[in-house]
Amino acid sequence: MGSSRYAPDPAMRSETKRLIAEAARHCQPHYIYTIYPCTKAGTTELVVGEERFRIGTILAKSFAAATHCAAFAATAGMEFDCWMHGEEVAGDILLQFIVDAIGSEIAEATVRLTVKDVAAQAGQRQMNCGNPYSPGYCGWNIAEQHRLFRLLPSNPCGIRLNASGLMTPIKSVSGIVPLGHDVVKMAYGCAICNKKDCYKNRIKD
């Protein structure tokens, strides 16, 4: 809820509990992934299948040992989106805040399931699995989302992209996961990256 020092009062706890129960009725989590061979190009680029991504120096290090990667999309579902933007939630800034946090947790949990599944598949091919990374983060431009979606079936899990590369339903995550015999699962990028202007590092500080 924005701060580890925040202790929610009983009213806030009860509202959050009610919304979590309500969210369970609206969320329909789905994920999809496809595994491709990949190769690095220089210190900032990665070629996955027939797509060339400018992932930047931070992410390139995480893909240094990757011979393959999984392109994925995961979502809390369109019904959650409709609820989130419906009259009850959208008209109340406090509910918006709580439901946004719940939606992010659902999407992140769906990504964790995706990666678990990818890791199991990769394991059968004697490959290890790294952390997932998404366009928009760690210096990887959101505009490359369109290229990433070309690696997945059309409208994967019902997710659509707008011209800016943003996804609908909003509570969706897409990205790539490094795979390979020599891939080592490191501490998550945020634990080792010192990108000064990233909000995650500011939270860390």
Binding site: M1, G2, S3, R5, Y6, P8, I93, L94, F97
Partner: peptide, 9 residues
Amino acid sequence: FVPNLLMSA
């Protein structure tokens, strides 16, 4: 905290 601000708003 943020929730307090939101509740006031």
